[in-house]
Write a protein that binds this DNA or RNA. Structure first.
Lengths: 351, 351
DNA sequence: AGGTACTGTGGGAGCGCTCCCATCAGTGAT
DNA sequence: ATCACTGATGGGAGCGCTCCCACAGTACCT
């Protein structure tokens, strides 16, 4: 009666059991060898490995996932439309770091975009089904519900850039505060005295930290606080143009601008051009990100470099340890779960 | 004895069995409802759906995959380093189409890069483990072993651009032959008589088809064949520059060039500039792809547009039907499995 | 009345693993 | 010799589904 049990048997993929039979050992022993357990004698291990090779055995992921309650996969979730993902080098750099670090392991990376409501809906389903062991979350805004969803589902997650000073999720960030200070101190050392700042989106914590760094660098150098030298931007080119225009109107005598991103700086540059200001002769300009734009701008843009690729690697490290460690998150200390990486100023002709 | 069976029971995710108990039906019936089988009475279906909602039931993918021998996931395999993926709009357009079509279904998309040998190794393992139901293969060269591996593993696959005229895999392509003809006929209609062609990589079938289209358009218009007007390129900018330089040396009197890609055309443009030729006054230039480069070139480049996003959608359609249809591939007719989509000439100032 | 043919349903068996308990042989201490 | 231990191993039970067979009920023929 070749009924049910025969499903895909002959000619199908070999199973653990078949490997065990071939090697003349039990199922458990083969499992131990496959999973690298040390409690197997060398002779047995060799026999099993030979059988695995002969049969071309590959473990069935679904069966393993069902029995062990893990998937050996993690997701990189991008809460943005795909377009932005491709447009910004930030993501591709991060992906490079993530991929590199992950290639050391057996983990699989899924790339998931959640830009539209529909996509977010699908993502929620996906996470609820626990189809990944952990999640990497990049570019999250202050009011995003995703981190809470992850916490509720008890899925380990690492976020790039905390949402606030009180972030409870594990995170890896660059030193936004320090980076901003570097930028401003650089401008001061070049003899600039009237330094303006165009901010990033104010609902992004990193943008806030850059404002703090800007303020503190100035006051530490003995400059009186002047909040009118700060103008809100939103990380976009148009935002930079708009903000720069407003700043020039308010402070025709300013001699330097620190922009919260290179793209913003590009917008600012345009406004400066239109106003007849020369860079860097009349106004020095510093950006943030050290992206391709910075190198190709005319004149090349001084910028603050973030080690994005390394951030990607560190995020994976953190996430994998969280996944391995499956204790309730509250048990662990926050210290080792919130990394801040140093930034570096890259001086170019614009300052 | 709360030993094994208790694993994750209390507070864990609800199971089919629990839903069945709640709805007062059997396990099989719940399964039928979940999977949309028509053989369930309306009343029962409603009861089950209520229970599902109350318990917040989400099927366990691993269990389903194990029992049903399918994963509900497909992979988009890019046999290129990530860098190229991000650099070329081709991929992002295709991804957009793929994502759009897939969002209609419950299928999950995995993005897998296989640029390095190491990555290819991992991919082979991944495929051998049958972790996806099907594969979308983009940008494959003639000698790539991947398609054969897929065939051997009996994994349904769709390729973007057949490897040769005898391609056996399902494929979706644009009409390279027709596109090339359009380009050449356009140049002829503009009164150009000495039309050269810079080819793409010769191991790419689509590049061969473009050469064929170029040849036939000329001979159909009564032009004598002149193979010295054809120069090999490789889709890159440097290749275009090199080829154009060679062509100018051989045929100083040529008055038009059809390049196998926009990037190639950009290289050709540079060579033409250096040789003091004006575009389009002295030499008309036509590219292929209608990428962002074409629009931003100086002068804007006439180019042949491929409907890449639609190609992505069609590839998914084809793949899903292959996956659904799980008959041996040989049974099916090739006709419906090899699509060719029309191209369109976008005239701009360069011709 | 009996037969045939559905439709709707319940539940056993099985997918291929991991986990854990039981077992067994070997080792050294008593 | 006996009694722990220890390290290596076999195999039962179970993960949560799908598939399919069996069966009850109803309807429509002979």
């Amino acid at each position: 009666m070749p009924s049910h049990g025969a499903r895909g048997r002959s000619g199908g993929r070999p199973t653990l059991e078949e490997v065990a039979a071939r090697a003349g050992v039990g199922r458990g022993t083969v499992s131990r060898v496959i999973n690298g357990s040390p409690r197997v004698s060398d002779a047995t291990r060799a026999a099993v490995e030979a059988a695995v090779a002969e049969l071309g055995y590959v473990p069935n992921t679904a069966a393993r996932a069902l029995a062990a309650n893990r998937t050996d996969a993690i997701a990189l979730v991008v809460p943005e439309p795909e377009t932005r993902f491709f447009a910004e080098p930030y993501f591709s750099d991060m992906l490079k770091g993530v991929g590199a670090e992950l290639s050391e392991t057996q983990m699989q990376l899924l790339l998931i975009f959640a830009g539209s409501d529909r996509e977010r809906q699908r993502l929620a389903q996906y996470l609820a089904a626990h189809r990944v062991d952990g999640v990497l979350l990049v570019s999250v805004h202050a009011d995003d519900p995703l981190p809470d969803l992850l916490a509720q589902l008890e899925i380990p997650a690492v976020i790039s850039g905390p949402r606030s000073a009180g972030e409870t999720l594990a995170s890896v960030d660059s030193d936004n505060y320090g980076g901003a200070r570097q930028a401003v101190e650089h401008l001061l050392s070049r003899g600039r005295g009237r330094i303006a700042h165009i901010t990033g989106r104010l609902d992004v914590y990193g943008a806030q930290r850059r404002i703090d760094g800007y303020r503190d660098a100035l006051s530490d150098a003995g400059h009186a606080a002047d909040e009118t030298l700060i103008e809100a931007g939103d990380f976009t080119e148009e935002g930079g143009l708009r903000a720069m225009t407003a700043l020039l109107e308010r402070h025709p005598d300013l001699d330097a601008v620190f922009a919260a991103s290179d793209v913003t700086a590009a917008g600012a540059r345009q406004a400066l051009r239109e106003a007849g200001r020369r860079i860097p002769d009349d106004v020095a300009l510093v950006g943030y990100d050290d992206s391709a734009i910075a190198r190709h701008m005319d004149p090349p843009l001084t910028s603050v470099r973030q080690p994005i690729e390394e951030m990607g690697r560190r995020m994976i490290d953190l996430l994998l340890s969280e996944v391995a460690d499956r204790r309730p998150a509250a048990t662990r200390s926050l210290e080792r779960r919130q990394l801040v990486l140093a930034t570096e100023l890259v001086p170019r002709a614009s300052s």
